[in-house]
């Protein structure tokens, strides 16, 4: 039985466990493939960059120690963290120091196309009005892109990633309170 949301609710601060749990619950609840939280970058004021995200799509190769006994929800969280760790290791060029890699770390061969899409999203940045996140930020409105698989490729910018597009809708929601 669903209860009405409380009138006075705790503020959602990015980076906190509360915020992350709500993002993850949202993507899990409606079976979206991923969710990404874009926020203004500290190094580039006014430019939106990847701040946090959760991946809930197809998994190609699992790398988790046998000693761990994880629930389905914990697997989603762990996979999201592993994809983020892979991105930063590739960015820093650590991938060639194989001896120092943790045994559970992912390598580029371990991820599916949809996971690649999620990782490549981390390379993006949007000026106000640019791309869907930039438009949502500039207009301070939610932007629903329905039938994304039919959209012009420039709208999504990474359509070439995979011919089997796994997302059907994209939603960008502005966060006015965190505007610089």
């Amino acid at each position: 039985m669903a209860s009405a949301p409380p009138v006075q609710e705790e503020a959602l601060q990015p980076g906190t466990n509360h915020f992350r749990s709500r993002l993850a619950a949202a993507v899990r609840s409606i079976s979206w493939s991923y969710t990404i939280f874009w926020s203004t970058s500290t190094s580039l004021p006014g430019v939106l960059t990847w701040n946090d995200g959760f991946y809930n799509g197809e998994v190609k190769t699992r790398k988790i120690s046998n000693l761990e006994d994880l629930t389905a929800d914990q697997l989603v969280l762990r996979r999201s963290e592993q994809l983020s760790e892979l991105y930063y290791s590739l960015l820093s060029g650590e991938c060639d120091h194989r001896a120092r890699k943790p045994v559970a770390a992912l390598s580029p061969e371990d991820i599916a196309d949809t996971e690649w899409y999620y990782v490549v999203c981390m390379t993006y940045a949007f000026r106000p009005g640019q791309g869907l996140p930039g438009r949502s930020y500039a207009s301070n409105r939610s932007v629903w892109l329905c039938n994304a698989q039919s959209a012009d490729s420039k709208t999504l910018s990474t359509c070439a990633l995979s011919e089997e597009r796994v997302y059907s809708d994209n939603c960008l929601h502005p966060l006015h309170e965190w505007r610089a």
Partner: peptide, 28 residues
């Protein structure tokens, strides 16, 4: 940086502008 969306898909903005984190909380 992503290219500008010169040819948007079906853009359905919400009726009124949203402000504050309470709206984001309700959205989630």
């Amino acid at each position: 940086c992503a290219e500008d969306a010169v040819h948007g898909g079906f853009d359905m903005g919400s009726a009124s502008a949203m402000v504050g984190d309470d709206d984001f909380s309700s959205f989630l």
